[in-house]
Design a binder for these strands. Structure first.
Length: 569
RNA sequence: GCUCCCGUAGUUCAACGGAUAGAAUAUCAGGCUUCGAACCUGAAGACAGGGGUUCGAUUCCCUUCGGGAGCACCA
């Protein structure tokens, strides 16, 4: 709810000698008013019937409002247990349009410029980059932007697994595909990435089905950690770079830039040290040849931090990563955007961290997001049943290409790319972060209705109007009569700041997505009902300003989702 | 087996413990000589089942059924 409106209502209540209890909401129908004050809380305190109370309060406020000059509130009426306020459209228009025109509209300083890290993407080198990663990046980037807009100092970091068993599997596979390997060395970034996926699949299958291969993979793994074998080093470094080059092309494509790339290879040594240092203190314990953290002591489960070969596992590396991150950035909080299957893992890790690094307590947050599952079944890079991130983008582009036929578009290639990215990002962000997405090519990335292109379409329509209108007069005039469609748009505009704040506190970009959908729909209704360019001068001036404000807020909101607008589509 | 998450129109998603459970898509019926029809209007269609707490439950608790994930040397 808009601050100004809230203040006005509070002022009115104060005059009537009533304290503000309960949050303002929006009535289900516009005939019932524009803002609603529920009276359950008020009634409960006084032990009265909320319906009777609302009726009485509305009556009181109605007489009181006469004494509030230039109030934005036109009328007060009781509906059941609610007191509903009718806002004056003209005053609302003057307030909102002025506010929404500001560069910083929607921003706030909730974060107090505190430092936070948003860690996301984390693809592993030598493995496929699939649509799950795409969802992760989309979510992480959007969260980073939302946090920034409410006044946090955000650092985007990416933690990538470039050591570990999966690398060994891939190298094992590479050694068994010598011809393909030789050929791909002279090819492009994408081909190399595809080759690594193939090699990984080969190694992964052999590891599970063949005892000898399993041992060979373990040997390679040890060599990667020790760095003792020149031949392995060389192959490892070369293929590692292939992956990183490829990831960079994708980051660029989806509009994400990282401030710091962390690698497992830079923390595994220190991870091992930390565990050793803390065995004496009794934090970690030996068990069956490995070193574990006894999570069971704390109602969690035990986890292996050093395996029986003495190599650090993911958990030990994460200890060192945390240490490094606190040392480099002194963050207030670190958000790890990681799949929800690791929820229990993080509970144990954060517990162990509290002992090893006491200042981390309460500052480590696991932002769990849901799976992207295929309708035909679960994705698995082992069986090759994965949808690669880029192939999704290409498929969606194909669909848009068909749609765009017959349109007069200036830069079709650029537009198709942008619309495709918008469609995909929106399809990931419209649903709650923690929810799984059952992915289906034909249904999931929609181009109509509740979709990214629908939002972009609102923007291009407005841009088209503004272009035809030419240079607008500097002073905006306000007509006496404002239609319901216009008023709805104004009310939507007034909600933007609150939506962004909520999205930030709940770490949930879908709030912004839903808001934009409503804004776009209300714009479409307005567009049908209210001609802009052919309107009488005063009305035209107002509508142009209104439409400009809508575009401005829409672009701000789309930016928070990581979506760029287009001129034509 | 233990722990956690999730069951809302045919389908994909909404709904700070509050008003007549909202959208989109698919289906049916309408709307372009008028700022871009990737749009708009209308119809039909849902809280998995059963208990409980509450003035009030889709929301909280218990339970049954159904789906998913995690639970020692992967990340």
């Amino acid at each position: 709810m808009n601050k100004k409106i809230q203040e006005q209502i509070e002022k009115l209540l104060e005059k009537a000698g009533v304290k503000m209890i309960g949050e303002l909401t929006v009535p289900p129908k516009s005939e019932m008013g524009d803002v609603a004050l529920p009276c359950f809380g008020l009634a409960k305190k006084g032990g009265v019937n909320p319906v009777a109370y609302a009726k009485e309060l509305a009556k009181k406020l109605s007489s009181e409002k006469l004494r509030v000059k230039s109030s934005i509130i036109d009328n007060v009426k009781a509906f059941g247990p609610y007191v509903n306020f009718f806002l004056n459209a003209k005053v609302l228009a003057e307030d909102i349009l002025e506010e929404a025109a500001q560069e910083k509209y929607g921003q706030s300083d909730l974060g107090g410029n505190k430092k936070i890290l948003v860690e996301f993407a984390h693809p592993n080198t030598h493995k496929a980059f699939h649509i799950g990663h795409l969802r992760n990046i989309t979510t992480g980037e959007s969260l980073a932007r939302i946090f920034e807009s409410v006044g946090y100092s955000v650092t985007r970091v990416n933690y990538q697994g470039d050591v570990g068993l999966h690398i060994a599997k891939c190298l094992w596979g590479t050694e068994r595909l010598p011809n393909e390997y030789a050929a791909v060395r002279s090819e492009g970034v994408a081909e190399r990435a595809a080759f690594l996926g193939q090699a990984y699949a080969k190694g992964g299958v052999a590891y599970e089905e063949n005892e000898q291969a399993k041992e060979e993979v373990a040997v390679i793994n040890a060599k990667i950690y020790s760095g003792a074998d020149e031949k392995v080093n060389k192959l490892y470094q070369e293929t590692r770079q292939w992956s990183l080059d490829y990831f960079n092309t994708i980051y660029q494509r989806v509009g994400t830039k990282f401030d710091r790339l962390y690698f497992e290879s830079e923390v595994f040594k220190r991870g091992k040290e930390i565990v050793f240092e803390n065995i004496k203190k009794g934090i970690f314990a030996e068990s069956q040849g490995a070193v574990i953290f006894p999570g069971e002591k704390y109602g969690l489960h035990n986890r292996v931090f050093l395996n029986s070969q003495g190599l650090p596992t993911y958990e030990a590396k994460d200890l060192a990563l945390a240490e490094l991150q606190f040392k480099e950035y002194h963050p207030e909080k670190i958000f790890h955007v990681v799949g929800k299957e690791q929820t229990e893992y993080f509970r144990v890790l954060f517990k162990a961290l509290e002992f090893v690094l006491p200042k981390s307590r309460g500052r480590e947050v696991h932002l769990d997001y849901g799976w992207v599952t295929l309708k035909e079944g679960k994705m698995s890079s082992r069986t090759g049943n994965v949808v690669l991130g880029e192939s999704l983008i290409e498929q969606v582009k194909g669909k848009i290409h068909e749609q765009i036929q017959g349109h007069d578009v200036a830069n079709p290639e650029e537009v198709i790319e942008k619309v495709a990215i918008a469609a995909i990002k929106y399809s990931f962000l419209r649903t709650g972060v923690a929810n799984d997405i059952a992915f289906d090519f034909n249904e999931s990335v929609s181009l109509t209705g509740d979709s990214g292109p629908y939002l972009l379409y609102m923007c291009t329509r407005i841009k088209s109007i503004l272009a035809k209108a030419g240079v607008a007069a500097s002073a905006v005039s306000f007509p006496e009569s404002i239609s319901p469609a216009e008023k709805n748009l104004l009310l939507s505009l007034s909600n933007f700041s609150g939506v962004v704040a909520r999205a930030a506190t709940e770490a949930d970009p879908s709030q912004v997505a839903h808001y934009l959908l409503e804004l776009a729909h209300r714009f479409s209704e307005f567009y049908e009902a209210c001609p802009v360019l052919n309107a009488e001068e005063t009305v035209k001036s107002f509508r142009l300003a209104l439409v400009k404000a809508v575009l401005s807020v829409a672009e701000k909101g789309l930016y928070l989702l990581g979506i760029q607008t287009v001129e034509t589509m």
